[in-house]
Design a protein around this nucleic acid. Structure first.
Length: 607
RNA sequence: GGGGAUGUAGCUCAAUUUGGUUAGAGCCCCGGACUGUCGAUCCGGAGGUUGCGGGUUCGAGUCCCGUCGUCCUCGCCA
């Protein structure tokens, strides 16, 4: 390397005029115009225009004309003003250009399989295979600059508040989040396996028992589940835990972190503390435990109003203990054509609904196949309860609360997008709390945990009673058990913004008796608890402080800050939907000798 | 694991509905022209096993079966 860089391409401004500088980077584009050639040179900070003139040096001009895209070069030259009428306001460096006096080719490049620019679409397979080219695009560079800012800002904030950054093991025992574990064979213990952590949950609790008081970590979390737009097999959590605190203390820390992050990344001042919304209210109003609270369009529960109505489908649904919920779509009648409604109905059915009832509030009549089943009074009630006006569309789902909420919440978001009700410059951070500790599934007559098994209940005496009941019935799910289970409220708090669940935290159980009761309630036997979590239970005997914490999805947070709808482009090397790494072509077959050593034999999967 | 979409030039797409003779366009690439361009422009050129395998047919990018990849979605999951 003959020419040593003095400035970054993207940093050059009018201030640098008359200075002789050396820049280095990738050839973005070359424009030959006879006796003059313009070359855009790109680095992390941006692009600058290099100029080669016949009058200055025929040799340099010829050299420039023989460069190719993505060649890596260094250039020395004088920064000059481009002159009246030649400036480019679209470029931050657009007032200036470099008159090149010396040029060094640092590396050549084959013609890349994709163009390095933001304004073209390339299929994701190619983007992931040549991720290093994809990452050269300015928008991707900006994503990771923001990611760095977010991490740095959170780290600084937590350091200032007395947190220790501590790493926990990657080779661990299975953790209890409920997802499938990635497992790693243990060579020195034939037949045994490590699990990669789904989260550092147990370890951070033990760190509190170790007396570290306040801990945080940017923790990689690995879960062997199918991916979605906002889910990858490996993701990063800002994980933290505090001793001698209550949820409000943890929330206050996160509010401080969030305020700093918003300021440092987007330059936005946000108002703290954040509002709280109970799980119950979130579900009834928005049909979701991660509601987008930036706009209204509340779901309306008509169950009580229609249980005696003339429309048998509605009345019977309510009598079966299910619900009838409605969503008013403002201007929906004018906006949604018959054909488009068919698509909606198909969508609803695809999600499990039996149908999608509707009323169109046309100019002077109701267009609806179900209107004829209702009395005038009932129609007036529906109009009043939903707030429907002329031009609106109201859709109804009569089914289980779960399904009705899921479908209508989905439509609520879809139409808010169409109506442009989702203000992209707004960030509605919200705490969701008062979650149920258990969920009861009527069909299978089973009570399952809504969270991991270390979440402290608000009302532990109910948990103890529930455990007692199960001990008496030998685990059988009686109506009394269901009542008790449903009465237990978790100390859990979820951190939500704009309809995305960023994180979740709680007070942890540190009382051995309550922890034992929790295992009973989850149907985890003494032996199983001992073998899976024995080390934690043992630790609880030796003085565990009261503790609470939270884990926040860094990738999702970035997705929100950048206005993206997937986390794919805030992760440098993401996996595909089939959990493959296209860049390194992972996963791959293992060396037979390695398998031999591990005592592992591959058995073909049965059909 | 289920459902849906998709695969045509290096890239983005058209031709698929109704099977028909030579599979087109823009960008990229190559050559030429051009002394203020910046998505440069103009002229010329190259570039294809239509994902892969099989089948139907006189004839398949187009129809059928299988298979693989990618994306979305349900289940699952943070």
């Amino acid at each position: 390397m003959r020419l040593k860089r003095t400035h970054m391409c993207g940093d050059l401004r009018a201030d640098h005029i008359d200075q002789t500088v050396i820049v280095a980077g990738w050839v973005d584009r070359i424009r030959e115009i006879g006796g003059v050639t313009f070359l855009d040179l790109r680095d992390r900070e941006g692009r600058v225009q290099l100029k080669f003139r016949l009058e200055s040096s025929a040799k340099l001009l010829d050299a420039a004309n023989h460069l190719g895209r993505e060649y890596v070069i260094a250039a020395e030259g004088k920064v000059v003003h481009r002159g009246e009428g030649n400036t480019n306001p679209k470029l931050p460096t657009g007032d200036v250009e470099m008159e090149v006096e010396d040029l060094e080719i640092l590396n050549k490049s084959e013609t890349p399989p994709m163009e390095i620019r933001d304004d073209i679409e390339v299929n994701s397979e190619l983007r992931l295979k040549y991720r290093y080219l994809d990452l050269r695009r300015p928008s991707l560079q900006a994503n990771f600059k923001l990611r760095h800012r977010l991490v740095k800002s959170a780290r600084d904030h937590l350091d200032a508040r007395g947190f220790y950054e501590i790493e926990t093991p990657l080779l661990t025992k299975p953790t209890p989040e409920g997802a499938r574990d990635f497992i790693v064979p243990a060579r020195q213990s034939p037949g045994k396996f490590f699990a990669l952590p789904q989260s550092p949950q147990i370890f951070k609790q033990i760190l509190m028992m170790s007396g570290f008081d306040k801990y945080f970590q940017f923790a990689r979390c690995l879960r062997d589940e199918d991916k979605r737009g906002d889910r990858q097999p490996e993701h990063t959590q800002l994980d933290l835990e505090m001793s001698f605190v209550e949820p409000a203390d943890v929330q206050s820390v996160i509010e401080g972190v969030a305020a700093d992050i918003m300021k440092q990344t987007l330059g936005i001042d946000i108002v703290t503390p954040f509002p709280h919304l109970s799980y119950r209210d979130a579900m009834s109003k928005y049909g979701s435990d991660k509601p987008d609270t930036r706009f209204g369009m509340p779901l309306v529960d008509l169950s009580d109003d229609v249980k005696e109505c003339g429309f048998a489908v509605f009345a019977n649904t309510v009598k079966e203990g299910k619900v009838v919920k409605a969503l008013r779509i403002p201007t929906g009648h004018t906006m949604v054509s018959k054909g488009q409604f068919k698509a909606l109905e198909k969508d609803a059915k695809g999600r499990g609904a039996k149908g999608l009832a509707f009323i169109r509030y046309a100019e002077d009549e109701l267009v609806s196949p179900i209107a004829k089943f209702f009395t005038e009074e009932e129609l007036a009630m529906i109009k009043e309860r939903t707030g429907a006006e002329t031009g609106d569309l109201v859709v109804f789902v009569a089914d289980t609360a779960h399904l009705a909420d899921q479908i209508l919440a989905h439509f609520r978001i879809t139409f808010a997008d169409k109506l442009e009700l989702r203000d992209m410059s707004r960030y509605d951070y919200t705490w969701i709390d008062n979650f149920p500790q258990f969920e009861y599934d009527e069909e299978s007559n089973q009570i399952v945990a809504a969270h991991h098994p270390f979440v402290m209940p608000e009302n532990p005496e109910q948990l103890l009673a529930f455990a007692d009941e199960l001990r008496h019935t030998d685990g059988a799910v009686t109506p009394k058990a269901v009542d008790l289970a449903e009465s237990i409220v978790a100390t859990q708090y979820d951190f939500v913004v704009n309809g995305v669940e960023l994180g979740s935290g709680s007070i942890r159980i540190v009382d051995r008796e309550i922890q034992d009761a929790m295992f009973v309630c989850l149907g985890i036997g003494k032996e199983q608890a001992e073998s899976q979590f024995g080390f934690l239970l043992e630790a609880l005997k030796y003085g565990a402080p009261p503790m609470a914490g939270i884990g926040i999805g860094v990738d999702r947070w970035l997705m929100i800050l950048l206005g993206l709808d997937t986390i794919q482009d805030v992760i440098v090397f993401p996996k595909t939907a089939g959990a493959k790494g296209l860049l390194d072509d992972s996963p791959a077959f293992a060396d037979p000798a390695a398998l031999e050593e591990l005592g592992i034999q591959i058995v073909p999967k049965k059909e």
